[in-house]
């Protein structure tokens, strides 16, 4: 190591710091002569240059590149930056940013280096331990914090992922009718709100569907039969709609469809007829046929009207009432 000349540095108060003292106080320092040639290297800094055969008298700039401020390329410019915060890298070991500060010593220049944000990587790269740092240096404490923080950050990330999964699951449950798997009333509200938030305004139709004679099935064949009917109806309604539409179960035997881009009446009529025909088809339950029918009230609306789903359902309910009064098993439009 370049420990050939031992020049005491005399501080202003007259204290002499010899190299042994400086090694203890500043284990990552380098002493240069007036021309910038290396006179002495602190023990930890010597470790960083271990792959380089450091010879006293060589120039610091052969090993170190100052990246900030720019253009510190000569001893002269280093002198001009005395006392300022510098950033440097070891040329042979790119990637590790060192912090540095240079001061004038009576014998020449003293540059002290430190690991900044590269501390954790540097410690593992050079197998450093607490003895490589000054006893009065908070590096060890910093390492505890860094290590623990990375463990906790990882743990917190995985915890958040799991909580998020559970939240989505709970939300899914809160928006779903457990019997049919269809969206419920709450989901319907959310769907219609989103529909109104769309950038492009759209026509849409609301079908309010009420089953006919459902109570009879429930009363004569039991709730299990009724449940089977409801599941079958759900299946029929899903088959009659597009993925962008919504089919919701909003009450015991009440279903709501919202169909987007519904400009013309005739396709809506066709859908309503098909739904009624299919629902009238008996559902087999334990060897018995369950007969139900469907009455439908239909509202055509536009997102520009900015009405709530409750408003539309009220209108649809009037049309539904008309259907029921017209002998059931049919549909009516509002207005």
């Amino acid at each position: 190591m370049g420990n050939l000349v031992s020049l005491p540095i005399i501080g202003r108060a007259g204290y002499a710091f010899d190299n042994a003292m400086l090694n203890l106080l500043l284990p990552m320092h380098v002493q240069l002569d007036q021309e910038g040639r290396i006179i002495h290297v602190g023990p930890t800094f010597a470790k960083l240059l271990a792959f380089e055969p450091v010879v006293a008298g060589k120039h610091l700039f052969d090993y170190i590149h100052f990246s900030y401020p720019p253009n510190i390329l000569t001893n002269h410019s280093l002198v001009a930056h005395f006392g300022m915060p510098l950033t440097a890298q070891i040329k042979a070991q790119g990637g590790f940013d060192l912090k540095a500060v240079a001061v004038a010593g009576n014998a020449g220049i003293l540059v002290n280096f430190a690991f900044g944000t590269s501390l954790k990587e540097a410690v593992s790269h050079w197998h450093l331990n607490s003895k490589d740092f000054s006893a009065a240096d908070p590096t060890v404490e910093m390492l505890y914090v860094i290590e623990v923080q990375s463990v906790l950050l990882e743990a917190s990330r995985s915890l958040n992922d799991r909580l998020n999964g559970q939240r989505e699951e709970a939300e899914e449950k809160a928006y779903t009718d457990p019997l049919t798997g269809l969206p419920n009333r709450r989901a319907l509200n959310r769907y219609v709100k989103r529909l109104h938030c769309q950038r492009v305004p759209t026509d849409f139709a609301v079908f309010l569907i009420d089953l006919d004679h459902f109570k009879l099935v429930n009363d004569t064949l039991g709730h299990a039969a009724g449940d089977q009917v409801l599941q079958k109806v759900a299946e029929i309604l899903l088959n009659e709609t597009r993925p962008t539409d919504i089919v919701a179960r909003t009450g015991g035997d009440e279903f709501v469809l919202v169909l987007e881009d519904a400009e013309d009446i005739s396709p809506l009529e066709a859908i309503a007829k098909r739904i009624i025909r299919k629902i009238e088809h008996p559902v087999l339950w334990e060897g018995q046929n369950c007969y139900v029918g469907a009455s439908i009230g239909i509202v055509c609306a536009h997102t520009k009207d900015n009405r709530s789903i409750d408003f539309h359902l009220q209108s649809a309910d009037e049309a539904l009432y008309n259907s029921k009064n017209n002998g059931r098993g049919t549909f009516r439009f509002v207005g």
Partner: peptide, 29 residues
């Protein structure tokens, strides 16, 4: 392991560093 071994390059240094482990660990957690 990393943190404890950072205490020193020999077993004796490691033993001495145990004096500080409590405060350091408490600072972090």
């Amino acid at each position: 392991r990393r943190l404890l071994k950072f205490g020193g390059s020999s077993y004796v240094e490691f033993l001495h560093s145990l004096n500080f482990v409590y405060d350091r660990a408490k600072m972090a957690v």
